[in-house]
Amino acid sequence: MKKFFLALWWWFVLIMGSLAAYMLYRKPFSLTPYLVLAGTAFFALCTFKLIQEGYRPWGLLGESRTGFWLSLLLLPLTLLPLLSAYEVWQQGIYIADESRSHRLFNVLLTWGLELLQKLFGHWGPIVAMVLTTLCMSSILLSVMGTYRR
């Protein structure tokens, strides 16, 4: 099974690396190809180390660091609320996306952000999303600290 995951990992790295190299060739002075290349390298490193930790012999070198690599892999996802806050700041108003599914979580989130906007203006959702980003990243960093040797 380890060979299957490593083959899948190599397939992903080759495709994304080729895409990043092509983007870099097309627009060498743009920031986007460098961000894609850095993101691909970060994802490749974290997933490779996660596969290594998952298939390491149990008695070798003490405790597993799987949680550390998984937390490090999830750390960039904490920036998504910050991206949403930037979009609200650009528009000057929070606009709920009506095309999203009407699940309970999405309805409550939209209702909460609209309430914050009514109470505090467009800065209400921005502050809420920035605080969410900070809380999520601090939780992941504390989890990473417990798995660090």
Rank of each mutant, 00 (worst) to 15 (best):
M1D: 10
M1R: 06
M1C: 09
K2Y: 10
F4A: 11
F4H: 10
F4T: 11
L6F: 08
A7E: 09
W10F: 08
F12D: 12
V13L: 07
L14R: 00
G17S: 15
A20W: 08
A21Q: 01
A21Y: 12
A21D: 01
Y22C: 10
Y22I: 10
K27C: 07
K27H: 14
L31M: 04
L31S: 09
T32L: 13
P33A: 01
A38M: 04
G39Y: 04
A41C: 01
A41Q: 00
F43T: 13
F43I: 13
L45K: 01
C46Y: 13
R56N: 06
P57V: 02
P57R: 08
G59I: 00
L60H: 08
G62R: 05
E63M: 13
F68C: 02
F68V: 06
L70W: 11
L72W: 06
L74I: 06
L75W: 02
P76I: 02
P76Q: 07
L77F: 09
L77A: 10
L77M: 11
L77Q: 14
T78P: 03
T78L: 06
L79Y: 14
L80C: 04
L82D: 01
S84R: 12
Y86T: 08
E87Y: 13
V88K: 02
V88C: 05
W89H: 03
W89N: 04
D97L: 07
E98S: 12
S99L: 10
R100C: 02
R100N: 06
R100Y: 04
R100D: 05
S101T: 12
L104E: 11
N106R: 12
V107T: 11
L108E: 08
G112T: 00
G112R: 01
L115F: 08
K118A: 11
L119C: 01
G121E: 05
H122M: 04
V127C: 02
V130L: 12
V130S: 00
V130M: 04
L131G: 01
T132I: 14
T132P: 00
L134W: 09
M136I: 05
S138L: 15
S138G: 10
L140V: 07
L141D: 02
S142R: 13
Y147D: 05
